[in-house]
């Protein structure tokens, strides 16, 4: 895939994932529990180096919001994917976030204990977004959440229609 196509693909995936994190926080108890560990006004950004597409999530006054590109400020935790090709490996689900980080493809600026929570959230969200056969490749351990199909439906609805 060419550079421009990769950027468009990744932009779309970041948008869907960012919105899905917000939706999963409303839908899934485990995701909510992970965010409960994080302080209020905590913001997290996942992006491609140097100025590639990315997503920003903020926890504010007890709610979790996806922040649109261009509206984000500096993040408390920034996970920066070191190249577009590494971003493609991650978002074509050839490897999990944990594996990508352990292979040095992601720089992490901020508290690493918060990064652990965020990686678990991303894994959980991928289990909802992706078919089992793909999600198994994208996460370290595939565990089917209770009422997965109902919650998946809710998350997709919220990705598409929630404000």
């Amino acid at each position: 895939m060419g550079t421009a196509a990769s950027r468009i693909y990744l932009s779309l995936l970041f948008w869907v994932t960012g919105r899905a994190v917000q939706a999963a926080w409303r839908t899934d108890r485990e995701v909510r529990r992970e965010f409960d560990r994080l302080p209020d006004l905590f913001s997290f950004r996942l992006s491609v180096y140097p100025s590639g597409p990315g997503l920003t999530i903020m926890k504010k006054e007890g709610t979790v919001r996806y922040i649109r590109q261009g509206e984000e400020g500096p993040a408390d935790l920034h996970m920066m994917i070191k190249s577009l090709s590494h971003g493609m490996s991650l978002f074509t689900f050839q490897e999990s976030t944990a594996l990508s980080a352990s292979r040095g493809r992601i720089a992490i600026y901020g508290d690493l204990s918060y990064a652990c929570s965020i990686v678990r959230v991303l894994d959980r969200v991928e289990i909802y977004l992706l078919p089992r056969v793909i999600a198994k490749r994208a996460v370290k351990r595939y565990e089917s959440p209770p009422a997965k199909h109902r919650k998946r439906f809710m998350i997709y609805l919220r990705v598409l229609f929630s404000p």
Binding site: A98, S102, L112, S113, C116, S117, R120, V139, K140, R141
Partner: peptide, 13 residues
């Protein structure tokens, strides 16, 4: 231990 970054590197979650 949920927040210890070394868990990234464990072969199994």
């Amino acid at each position: 231990a949920a927040g210890d970054p070394s868990r990234f590197y464990n072969p199994e979650d």
